[in-house]
Design a protein around this nucleic acid. Structure first.
Lengths: 251, 251
DNA sequence: GGAACTTCTGAGGCGGCTCTGAGGACTCTG
DNA sequence: CAGAGTCCTCAGAGCCGCCTCAGAAGTTCC
């Protein structure tokens, strides 16, 4: 089952590209077409060339055709399990990076065995920010993609985030964040000087099956302010009726 | 309310065009024919080549024929839901931009995820100015349309508006605006040196179901003057019996 | 199995935003 | 100069958006 094909990245950021200049390619494999659509959309937006497949057989066929740099692979598939697909993928393209999608209660050690090769995994339900970030991490570690070589540091003013170490500092001082706080801040830092609506934030930072209200965003913004701004000149700003905005202090 | 259909853009600005010179194409999908007509009219006025559809099936067929650069899509359709149409649209044209229309109370529901790909949405009742602006934002981020590449800055004289950051400055000084003030000013700035009637302003800046009087326009113009002109040489001018006009100060 | 932490819900309150109404100023006309 | 029409501005009521607190439920770690 072919879900969608693809031509160009739509994102404002520079297209992800390999040393030869062609865009990075990713294959999304999930039997839930809605989820595959959402993932494809998000990755396309990030500059990937995306193709999607709904089962293991199609996935391998698509991989042979596309020769993807990375694969986002649901472990539970209608025809085969993730392990079979993984073996086939490695036959097709030995150096492919794989990001597994797995249910929370899946057997942890089997996943651990699979990811030994440098691959990674994310448990469902996940947030798009997490998938995108993990995939970036994989590629960086694999040494692909020129744009990613710059390192895992994210800077806005004197606010610095080390994504790999999951460490945040402001003017040198360490800031401790909970997982959600961290991911929210990462999203803000990847979109500085831009108003982000609560709905946008909810879409990217919270998991796709979150049924709650936009009110949580307000709450977590409030948490972040206490830790990030904390008496200092504020970097997180409310734009009434529009959303929130992170920007360096103007001097 | 029915707006007369027209063939060529009436607007003073150049027609929106893609790199190859042909005008940008948009498909409007809404089951309310009046609303579809209003939207179509406004977008045509902005220089788009417009076609409309009333349900998901027709929409996909039209899309296959038109190959639109963007789609304005009501989430609630008689035959399918937004996800289905979105998936079909992406199969037809993977790089299409989608702007969703949704009822206010449906936002919390399950819009989350749909917009993940960098697509955007607007809640009903919306103002035309908002739809047009969002659509421009989408296209800009997608890197289409030569005219839009200039960036998200709107300048009239020393008055500068950064739409993404929702920031307005006059000769460098920051001006704080409420949501309505912001949208009114945006409309004025996108139509400089042109007299805009109160009715025109009401139609574009206020949502289509606003029942109030033209008096609010006077009021908000007065608010804007206090903030934008504020002692300086005035840029906002009243044309008695006709409307208002924004222009740079002439020396 | 308990303690610490994290996440989310609900309620209360504050302040800003939007719009109405009224009074006054300005402009044009007869 | 009077009157009508148009526009400007102020004051205030109600509403809505946002912030914060407190606590319940779930999770992790020892």
């Amino acid at each position: 089952m072919l879900v969608s094909a693809m031509t160009t990245p739509r994102s404002g950021r520079p297209a992800l590209a390999r040393p030869d200049g062609t865009p990075l390619r990713v294959l999304v494999v999930d039997d839930d077409p809605d989820l595959a659509e959402v993932l494809s959309g998000a990755l396309r937006y990030e500059g990937w060339e995306v193709r999607a497949a709904g089962d293991g057989g199609t996935a391998v066929a698509e991989a042979r055709d596309l020769m993807p740099d990375a694969v986002v692979l649901d472990v539970m598939l209608p025809d085969t399990d993730g392990f079979g697909v993984l073996r086939s993928l490695h036959t097709v393209k030995p150096d492919v990076c794989v990001l597994f999608l797995t249910a929370r209660d899946a057997v942890e050690d089997r996943i651990a065995g699979i990811t030994a090769g440098g691959d990674d995994y994310v448990t469902k339900p996940f947030s798009l920010e997490e998938v995108v970030a993990r995939l970036r991490g994989l590629l960086r570690r694999a040494g692909m993609a020129r744009q990613l070589e710059e390192g895992p540091r994210l800077c806005v003013g004197d606010l610095v985030m080390d994504e790999e170490a999951r460490e945040v500092t402001r003017s040198g001082e360490l800031i401790e964040l909970s997982p959600t706080e961290f991911e929210l801040l990462r999203f803000l830092m990847r979109n500085p000087r831009r108003v982000l609506s609560k709905a946008q934030i909810l879409d990217r930072v919270w998991s796709y099956d979150f049924g709650g209200q936009a009110h949580v965003v307000e709450l977590y913004i409030s948490y972040l302010r206490k830790k990030v701004d904390a008496g200092r000149e504020p970097m997180i700003h409310t734009v009434r009726g529009a959303g929130y905005l992170l920007k360096p202090v103007t001097r």
